[in-house]
């Protein structure tokens, strides 16, 4: 069980919006090909932290980052790294399913390739593979030319996951991927996350603690911009080491 290697190694990471520091020296080794969940109260910095992992944070006005994040040992904040290219290695799925409204289902799946240059000749194959990977193929194979937004919320979210895996990233970051969809769709997406965890390193932000417990191998608890506890999910939810963690997950919010 302890044979997993580290995919993302975060050390002494600070992040701010202007004068407001939201993350305080986070140290964390995110294991490869496992699902890592980030939990914590609103405003604890978990989404900001996620966005630091593929350099989306710096797109926000006045946002700054200090510290290092290593992807397979290479610092992603090094001067030589192009953040645009980095994001093809570290994909992201957002809270609200956001298929491109003017694009068909197939085009949405290919979005990463279309946006960044070209669609190869075997586009149909890629679409099928990605949609199968996102457990959506059977539901949409007969209407690939329909708009992506014609799908239900849960299907849209899986479409967005398909879109994210089309560019074959190493890591998938998910920012509250189930918070805008119904329980059945949530179950489908959770199942998908679990399956994708076999082949991808996944980091999921969720404000649903039960969800974190269901889908993740490891869980990190953040509070007020600090990493309070990071441990095996089963350990953290049955016997957390820190009183703050215990109080938060059992629902004692002071």
């Amino acid at each position: 069980m302890s044979t997993t290697s580290t995919k993302l190694s975060v050390s002494d990471l600070d992040a701010s919006y202007g004068d407001h520091q939201v993350l305080h020296s986070i140290d964390m080794d995110i294991p490869a090909k496992e699902v890592t969940a980030l939990i914590g109260p609103s405003g604890c910095g978990k989404s900001t932290y996620l966005r630091c992992l593929n350099r989306m944070h710096e797109l926000t006005t006045a946002a700054t980052v200090n510290g290092t994040v290593q992807l397979d040992g290479a610092d992603i904040y090094h001067d030589d790294i192009d953040p645009v290219l980095l994001r093809r290695h570290i994909g992201m799925v957002f809270q609200k399913p956001a298929p491109f409204p003017t694009w068909s289902i197939a085009d949405n799946v290919l979005a990463g390739l279309k946006l960044t240059g070209g669609v190869p000749d075997n586009a149909d194959e890629i679409v099928e593979k990605a949609l199968k990977g996102a457990a959506l193929w059977e539901e949409v194979k007969d209407k690939l030319d329909k708009p992506g937004t014609s799908l239900s919320g849960g299907q849209q979210q899986r479409l967005c996951i398909a879109r994210a895996i089309t560019v074959e990233p190493d890591v998938l970051l998910m920012d509250e991927p189930c918070s805008a969809i119904d329980p059945v769709a949530t179950a489908r997406v959770e199942n998908l996350i679990h399956e994708l965890g076999e082949n991808y390193t996944i980091v999921v932000v969720t404000h649903n603690m039960q969800q974190a417990a269901r889908i993740s191998d490891k869980t990190a608890f953040l509070m007020m911009g600090e990493l309070v506890e990071f441990d095996e999910t089963s350990k953290l939810f049955s016997n957390p080491s820190k009183q703050e963690t215990e109080d938060y997950i059992t629902g004692k919010f002071g």
Binding site: A213, S238, E246, T250, G251
Partner: peptide, 10 residues
């Protein structure tokens, strides 16, 4: 009803 965890669950 509560899906208890941690100390409560134990």
């Amino acid at each position: 009803r509560r899906q208890s965890v941690a100390g409560d669950l134990r």
